[in-house]
Computed example of a mutant assay.
Amino acid sequence: MSHLKVVVTRNIGAAALDILNQQKGLNVVLWDSEDRVVEKDWLDANIKDAHGLLVVFTEKINEELVTKAGPNLKAVSTMSVGVDHVELPVLAKRGIKLGYTPNVLTDAVADISVMLALMASRNVGQAISIAQEGKWPGLPWSPFGFCGPQISTSSAMGLPTPRTITAGFLGFGRIARATLNRLIGFGITHALYTDSGKNTDPDEEHEKKDFSIPVTRAKDFMQVARESDIVFVLTPGGKETYHLVGEEFLQAMKSTAVLINPSRGTVVDSDALAKACREGWIWGAGVDVIEGEPNVGSDHPLIKEPRCVVLPHIGSATTETRTAMARLAAENVVAGVLGQPLPAEYPVSQ
């Protein structure tokens, strides 16, 4: 079995690499860098006759690469939940299994989702820049300075009528549910969702287990835009959801609402979102992903927009989560080259 070659395109940490190195019969070929994207020349030179390939989402798995690997390639494992960088028909045509890393990053991304909602609604981006640029001493306190919409509720506010806050979700998978569970603790009173960015059947019941507030399926994704105080974009990327959130969607949102995108940059039209923040269609936005990343410079419209909080794709960036993702990616590729069931296999035929 010494001929089973596994190419790994990033140093994914000792815990995961030990899984590979301790497996008898594997020849592990490693691009030994944590921070540098694998060089094309290196990958082209080493991919030939590989039985397994372990990548991160910066690598494009396409016809060219799979052809260079040759007929021995049995499994591709990606250290990510998203598979936008993988041409699924190419793997399906050759019977190559695809491993990915769902579930283990649910809590970390849900945390970031709530954090972005708080930051966007409370003008944290603007406030931090004031402090970091030394402008605080010259800025007098104002009764309504930096005020934004509050995403929590309290009976102690003394409001004449009970306040309702609706969280809307484009996509209602594990991360969305974990996010909603966190928001309930803040006092969110209602939730509205679509399972994807496409129209859904309003009569189809969705599991409401563990939710202590009303959770309703929207008639279509535009209802989520119109009725939500916070919209969380948590739907997969791809052609079907490309620029789902564009000018029409953003103009339909409340002027006091915020848009949060911790999923895929391609789902949101960046230019439209910057315009929506700038012209006051919505209150603000928080994004952990942007179309075209990481090529997002200081002149990018969302970076330049004070009402938009931008993070450099750190949703899963906890030590515990990334270690778990790396281990699962390693276990997937080992199982794939050995002809065993993958712990987490993505269905390439769909």
Rank of each mutant, 00 (worst) to 15 (best):
S2L: 12
V6H: 00
V7D: 00
V7Y: 00
D18L: 14
I19H: 14
N21Y: 11
N21M: 10
Q23P: 11
L26W: 01
V28R: 03
V28G: 04
V29Y: 01
L30E: 06
W31F: 14
S33H: 08
D35I: 15
D35G: 09
R36V: 15
V38D: 00
E39I: 09
K40Q: 14
W42G: 08
L43V: 04
L43D: 03
L43N: 01
D44P: 04
A45W: 13
D49P: 00
D49F: 02
H51N: 09
L53D: 00
T58F: 03
E63M: 09
L65V: 03
K68V: 09
K68S: 10
P71Y: 06
V76P: 00
V76F: 06
S77Q: 03
H85A: 10
E87T: 07
P89K: 15
V90F: 05
A92H: 06
K93F: 02
I96H: 03
L98G: 06
N103I: 12
A108P: 01
I112C: 12
I112W: 02
S113L: 04
V114W: 02
N123H: 15
V124Q: 07
I128S: 14
S129M: 14
K135C: 09
K135P: 08
W136E: 09
P137E: 05
G148E: 05
T153V: 15
S154L: 07
S154N: 09
S155P: 11
S155L: 09
A156F: 15
A156D: 07
M157G: 08
G158S: 07
T161I: 15
T161K: 12
P162W: 05
R163G: 02
T164M: 12
I165S: 01
L170K: 01
I175Q: 06
A178R: 09
L180Y: 13
L180A: 10
N181K: 15
R182D: 04
R182A: 05
F186E: 02
G187D: 04
I188F: 10
H190N: 14
L192Q: 12
Y193D: 06
T194F: 08
K198G: 12
F211A: 11
S212I: 11
D220N: 14
Q223S: 12
V224Y: 00
V231C: 04
F232T: 05
V233M: 08
L234V: 14
L234R: 01
G237A: 11
G237R: 05
K239A: 15
E240Y: 12
Y242F: 14
V245T: 01
E247M: 00
E247D: 14
A252C: 08
V258T: 11
S263V: 07
R264F: 03
V267N: 02
S270Q: 09
S270V: 04
D271I: 15
D271A: 13
L273M: 05
C277I: 13
V287I: 13
V287P: 00
I290L: 14
I290R: 12
E291R: 08
E293K: 06
V296C: 03
S298Q: 14
C308K: 02
V309H: 01
V310P: 06
L311R: 04
P312V: 10
S316Y: 05
A317F: 11
T319I: 13
E320P: 01
A324T: 10
M325G: 01
A326G: 07
A326N: 06
E331Q: 13
V334A: 03
L338K: 15
P341L: 11
Y346V: 08
Y346R: 07
P347R: 11
S349V: 15
